[in-house]
Amino acid sequence: MKNNLNSIAIRVDDLSFHYGDKNVLQHVTMDIKKGSFLGLVGPNGSGKSTLIKCILGLQKPQQGNVYLFGEKINKFNDWEKIGYVSQKANSFNTAFPATAFEVVSMGLFGRVGLFRFLKAADKRKVWEALKSVNMEQYAHQNIGELSGGQQQRVFIARALVSDPMLLILDEPTVGVDTESSESFYKLLKELHYNNNMTLVLVTHDVGVMTDYVTDVACLNKQIHFHGNTREFETSSSENISAFYGHHVHVLHHDHDHA
């Protein structure tokens, strides 16, 4: 396992996390290959968001390790290589007086550093990022005046502006209408295809997701399945109609490969 570390974007090694005496994650071990587009699915309360926060260093697991691009997380400091789009609903105040341009420029602050200001080249990057999500015409609108789908595009642009090698999205389409979320998934697929970027998409929306991702991991406190999309679909073919139409928890009972 050690010899192919170069091709691994994220390695999670025997990670366990609990809040008080409530177990959230138990012995999670997984490698996410560079250049893959992983859909991480699981029911509510399955620990998806917690796992993402551990991967981003926003939560400290009680046990286990996370490696990002071969570097142990507490030694990793290339955070501009990583873009993160959090669950929209609890992450920001929609009445915040900031334009789309200002929001995207935040993505560069880590790189620009303390006591320094954005230069003309940085501003060009912000425009490029807005263009890549087709939002440049809304650059000077306040973020709260945009629709849910448009806001999500702005947050993607903020994550993209620092040219990340890894983009992590936590339930990005919650509260976005179906039509917008489909064009949103198409955008992600394009980004993945054109930039050879590693993507991790957290979702409970199994049906739509499998049309776009290359790999699937099912999480419910533990990893119950991790493989490519084809394996995922064949392994669950007997139940495919059931879980396309319903919720993911149906799947977990049938595919306890872990």
Partner: peptide
Amino acid sequence: FMYKELFVLSFDEEQGRLSGI
């Protein structure tokens, strides 16, 4: 001098921590 940092922290603290603030 702290405009960027104050702006990010006011908008969302998580993003601020991710940018190493």
